[in-house]
Amino acid sequence: MADDLDKYVIEIEGLVNTVGPGIILHRDLNLKVRRDEVLSLVGGSGSGKTQLLRVILGLKRPKAGRAHVFGVSWDDPNVKKVRDARRRMGMLFQNGALYSALTVYDNIAFPLRERGGLAEEDIRAIVNTKLAQVELEPRHGKLLPANLSGGMVKRVSLARALALSPDLLILDEPTAGLDPDRSEGFVRLIKRLREDHRFAVVMVTHDLDTLFELTDRVAVLADQHIIACDTLAVVRAMDHKFVQNFFGGERGRRALEHS
């Protein structure tokens, strides 16, 4: 078990998930994420990718099954353990979810201040470091989220997600709403950050370029469970309707050539 903990950041076993009155979304779903990998979650629309993310984030309680993050279940009565586990993960929401009443600087400083134990001076240094890491300048710190462009919102929320130096970063459609040039830049940014800070990444994406560029393994969510979780080459060779539609065809070939 101790060995497992060291190896996996997320362990999901026999998960059953429902939406609304008794519609089963996931049945006997198993997924393990290693602590040094980038895992992409793909699936058709309505397959429950977002709901699975919500379970991982502890925003939704599964009907049955085990969902552990850093070896901790979100239902664990030990509040401190749960809090510590929460602080080891960062989340990049699809639309940024920046606090609209706070400036960029205060948005990034927020988790640091909540964490406690850091002098304001140190927080300032870390916020400025994070701003530089996502290729923004200190002067951007004074802006309000309403004044940012879409790409900047993504970068600021990435900086906020990374503020506590997480071991696990969860990305929900990281390149949605960015133009191809920007999304390429964003992917490069995440790649570079991962070189310095070895965090695991779980991402949901529809963008094949992002997928080919970043991912180590792909988990395919279809027919109410994970039908495969393996390297791109293995998954692409699968004979499944969704996989063939998703990776096959012109779109997939172009993205592959590109990478």
Binding site: I126, N128, D196
Partner: peptide
């Protein structure tokens, strides 16, 4: 690897 992190934070402190 650590030198890189220290450099980045050093830049942050200089602002």
């Amino acid at each position: 690897g650590h030198r890189e992190i220290l450099n980045q934070v050093g830049q942050g402190l200089l602002v």
